Computed example of a mutant assay.
Amino acid sequence: MSSPARSTVSAASGGAVSAAEDVADSIDALYRKDEAVAELKSEVMEALQKEVRSLDDDIWMFAAPRSRINLVSRPGNAYEK
């Protein structure tokens, strides 16, 4: 038979292991959260880079001078003949 003192020590150490496991689980959860945030950040940055590349490819459409249709359609402009 175990003495009451021994059972108290084993219960206390069991509680300490449980608390240590809880702390370890919390730390693991924080690391998983950090990893998930880092993964999401990299995915968002990759998508943003694709969008920037797409806009860079399409910049030629916006590089030309603006349309002068508004100047042509106004009466009294130099473009009107």
Results as ranks from 00 to 15, higher is better:
A64S: 05
E80R: 15
D28T: 06
A11I: 03
S73K: 13
D56H: 06
S42Q: 13
E35D: 14
D58E: 13
V9G: 03
G15N: 07
T8K: 12
L48T: 08
M61S: 03
A78K: 14
L40M: 07
L48N: 15
A20I: 01
S42A: 15
E39V: 00
S7H: 02
E39S: 09
I59N: 07
G76L: 03
Q49A: 13
S54F: 12
R6E: 11
V37N: 05
E43N: 15
S54C: 06
P4N: 03
M1G: 06
Q49I: 02
A36F: 11
D25A: 15
E35T: 04
V72D: 09
V44E: 04
R74S: 08
S42I: 00
E51L: 12
R68K: 11
V37I: 09
S18G: 09
V23Y: 08
S42G: 02
K33S: 15
S73E: 11
L30E: 14
R74T: 01
A19W: 10
S2R: 03
S7V: 01
A12T: 01
E21G: 12
K81N: 08
N77F: 15
V37Q: 07
I27Y: 08
V37E: 14
A5R: 04
S54L: 12
A38N: 08
A24E: 12
G15I: 00
A12Q: 10
R53Q: 13
P65I: 00
S26R: 10
A12G: 04
S13Y: 10
E43Y: 04
E51H: 09
S67I: 00
I27F: 12
W60A: 11
I27A: 15
E80W: 08
A11D: 04
R32C: 04
G15Q: 06
L30D: 13
S7R: 07
N77G: 05
A5L: 06
S2G: 02
K81S: 10
G14K: 01
S67P: 06
P75T: 01
A78T: 02
R68T: 00
Q49D: 15
K41W: 13
D56N: 12
I69F: 06
E80H: 10
K81L: 13
W60M: 05
A63E: 12
S10H: 10
R6C: 02
V37M: 05
R68N: 04
P75L: 09
A5K: 04
S73W: 07
S3Y: 02
T8N: 06
L71N: 11
S73R: 14
A29F: 09
G76H: 06
N77W: 15
A36K: 15
E43T: 06
G76K: 02
R68Q: 08
E80V: 08
R6Y: 02
K33G: 14
E46K: 11
V44I: 11
S2N: 03
S13P: 00
M1L: 04
E21A: 14
G14D: 04
S13I: 03
D34V: 03
D28E: 13
A29C: 07
L55P: 05
L55Q: 12
M45F: 09
V17D: 10
